[in-house]
Write a protein that binds this DNA or RNA. Structure first.
Length: 269
DNA sequence: CCCCAGGCTTTTC
DNA sequence: GAAAAGCATGGG
């Protein structure tokens, strides 16, 4: 069996596969879609990129098996709303507490061991949550808890319509504008929802790490400025000038992990 | 005590 | 308009 899967964070898995079959059984279509096995890396990083950035290319090649998953939009939205200005361990802690407090528990047996699993709570469940109780799951941040409840109510009422946001014909700027109308969602988190939850691999979220590598690897002078809505849009346009615009976010995420591990020497995701 | 973490909102110049 | 402060907590 030549398939290798490794969890990197709550949001990402790394998948390595050579063939499209496991023991004669075709990998189900949902599996291929979920792990984005339909995306070839030569579309994410064109050959011209290797010629322009030969040194960077050598570092990056180690990360080409990293997949962006096509995840549930609501789960993605709430998870990234928990990711504002705090470290990865606290983000994981928040999502973990959320599913243990509000998700449904199931038990599966794997390799002789019983494993407890929790599904991500439905919008209805979080929409009806008590703000103070929910805030225990959000790093005691009441504002964040209230934002999560409000946006969950928006989903229940149809005000936040993922069906419509999934429409490939909707321009990225429109998706970002609609999502960031909700309190607690700015440009960065809106782009994360688009990239990880809506399958928009053209969405390019810019956080502190992306800003750093844009300055260091791509010599962007805009990256030296503080990150504001204005500079965010400039950086976004700059990135699309040296990345394939259709897969800017997919490429950006590989650059993101390469930067964190190779340059920042971060081991924990 | 300082600054930084996969930022956003409000206040102030 | 753009910059600065507040939010919350853990780790270096």
């Amino acid at each position: 069996m030549s398939i290798f899967i490794r969890q990197i964070s709550t949001q990402e898995f790394e998948v390595n596969t050579i063939e499209n079959e496991i023991k004669g059984i075709p990998i189900p279509l949902f599996f291929q879609r979920y792990f984005s096995l339909d995306i070839d890396m030569d579309r994410v990083f064109p050959e011209s990129f290797a010629r322009f950035y030969p040194d960077l290319w050598k570092l990056l090649a180690e990360y080409f098996s990293l997949r962006i998953m096509r995840q549930d939009p609501f789960e993605t939205m709430i998870s990234f709303m928990c990711a504002q200005g705090i470290g990865m361990h606290l983000i994981r802690k928040q999502v973990s507490m959320l599913i243990k407090t509000y998700g449904e528990k199931t038990t599966v047996t794997f390799a002789g061991n019983e494993i407890e699993l929790y599904n991500f709570p439905d919008p209805e469940r979080l929409a009806a949550a008590d703000p103070f109780m929910l805030s225990r799951c959000t790093n005691n941040n009441r504002v964040r808890a209230n934002n999560i409840i409000a946006v969950s109510q928006g989903v229940v009422e149809g005000k936040v319509d993922f069906q419509r946001l999934c429409d490939r014909d909707m321009p990225l700027s429109e998706v970002r504008r609609k999502l960031s109308e909700n309190r607690g969602i700015g440009f960065k988190i809106a782009d994360c929802i688009a990239l990880f939850g809506l399958g928009r691999f053209d969405a390019f979220p810019i956080d502190t790490h992306v800003k750093q590598y844009l300055g260091s690897w791509f010599k962007s002078t805009t990256a030296l400025r503080s990150l504001s809505p204005a500079s965010y849009l400039i950086l976004d346009a700059e990135a699309r000038s040296f990345l394939n615009p259709d897969f800017a976010g997919y490429a950006g995420h590989i650059l993101f992990h390469c930067w964190r591990r190779e340059i920042k020497k971060l081991q924990s995701f």
